[in-house]
């Protein structure tokens, strides 16, 4: 019977995580518009409900009832497939992220672990799914049969491939420290207060990771693929209705996932920052840390201008790549000296 309990538990966890993720995505769009609005001294959405809190739902309903256009020059199957790839990869990355500790079901001795899958290759899985997610953006731009879309997706592909290298190298330091790719082990090693977090041992790697992650999720200052002023909208220019909404949701889901990975690797995951605060459940700490990172992402979008395309490429290959390599060398050297 253990198998069936396991199956039921997994299905429930999948549904709960999916629902929470989608709700966060909906309110992330609201939060971003609100915060950006206040940064630019305006109000942001404030017409639907109190503080504009119903705005995401009205946006969703609007997208749902819009006409779904497929351009005549488009490659229809690929055009339809691209948003699906984008959203599926963005959501399924969340499968390995440990968002809390375990608890025993009241009344039984059944232990529920707060993560969907705890696999040995956790970190590699994230990278594998992320590299598949690039297909969504690249194919979406190509299948539209539009030159702005194609330019946007070419830029996206080049940028993501370049920054994926530095992103992969920036976390090698953490892997060296924790000697595991299993995300739960990485979190477990950071227990017991914020001075045990990896960010203390790998501050440079954290900065590199955040910079590369911003490039991976195509956010300002690296939002080349959808540079509005040059490409009209980039890879999603021909998309309308729910297909556009799917791309939009994928982008925000990706942002949450990247923030969660950063929290898991560098900020102690669901561990409390101070030992005496451990009575508060880990899910709260995880959510709070993810919220802080996402707020930072929105904040810097309102602060920095967009970089030029050649500057982005040069920065990726000639600065970040070398710096991450140096970080690995120093980390490995220190680990060797300590034995």
């Amino acid at each position: 019977m253990q198998v069936f309990y396991f199956l039921i538990e997994t299905i429930i966890k999948c549904v709960v995580v999916f629902a929470c993720l989608m709700l966060s995505v909906a309110y992330l769009t609201w939060l971003e518009r609100k915060v950006l609005g206040h940064i630019q001294i305006r109000f942001g959405p404030n017409r639907c409900g109190p503080f504009g809190l119903l705005q995401p739902f009205s946006d969703g309903i609007k997208a749902f009832f819009k006409e779904d256009l497929i351009p005549g020059s488009a490659d229809k199957p690929v055009f339809v497939l691209a948003p699906m790839i984008a959203i599926i990869s963005a959501i399924s990355m969340f499968a390995v992220i440990p968002f809390g500790n375990q608890f025993t079901l009241p009344g039984t001795d059944y232990v529920v672990k707060l993560r969907i899958a705890d696999i040995d290759i956790g970190l590699l899985y994230v990278f594998g799914i992320a590299s598949l997610g690039e297909f969504g953006i690249v194919l979406g731009g190509w299948a539209s049969g539009n030159k702005y879309g194609l330019t946007g997706s070419l830029r996206a592909a080049a940028q993501m491939i370049s920054y994926e290298v530095a992103l992969g190298l920036s976390i090698v330091g953490v892997i060296l420290l924790s000697q595991s790719l299993r995300l739960t082990e990485i979190v477990a090693l950071q227990a017991g207060g914020f001075w045990h977090w990896n960010i203390i041992y790998q501050p440079a790697a954290f900065v590199f990771f955040i910079v590369c992650a911003l490039a991976e999720i195509n956010r300002t200052p690296f939002d080349m693929p959808e540079a509005e002023s040059e490409l009209a909208c980039g890879f999603n220019i021909e998309y309308s209705s729910m297909k556009f909404a799917l791309f939009f949701m994928a982008e925000y889901a990706h942002m949450i996932t990247v923030a969660s990975i950063a929290v898991t690797l560098f900020l102690g995951g669901w561990q409390a920052p101070l030992p005496f605060l451990e009575f508060i459940p880990g899910v709260f700490w995880f959510g709070a840390k993810v919220f802080i990172l996402i707020f930072f992402f929105i904040w810097q979008r309102g602060t920095f201008p967009r970089l030029r395309y050649d500057q982005i490429m040069k920065f990726g290959w000639k600065v970040l790549f070398e710096l991450t390599l140096i970080n690995i060398l120093i980390t490995a050297f220190v680990m060797l000296l300590k034995g």
């Binding site: 040995d120 990278f127 590299s131 190509w142 592909a157």
Partner: peptide
């Protein structure tokens, strides 16, 4: 062999086919 499986996805499906698609698009 989950390691081989994920390397298959990262290297072949992610990187190599991506480069092929990149070239065909041009």
């Amino acid at each position: 062999s989950p390691f081989i499986a994920i390397i298959q996805v990262v290297v072949y499906a992610g990187a190599i086919v991506m480069l092929i698609v990149f070239i065909i698009m041009l």
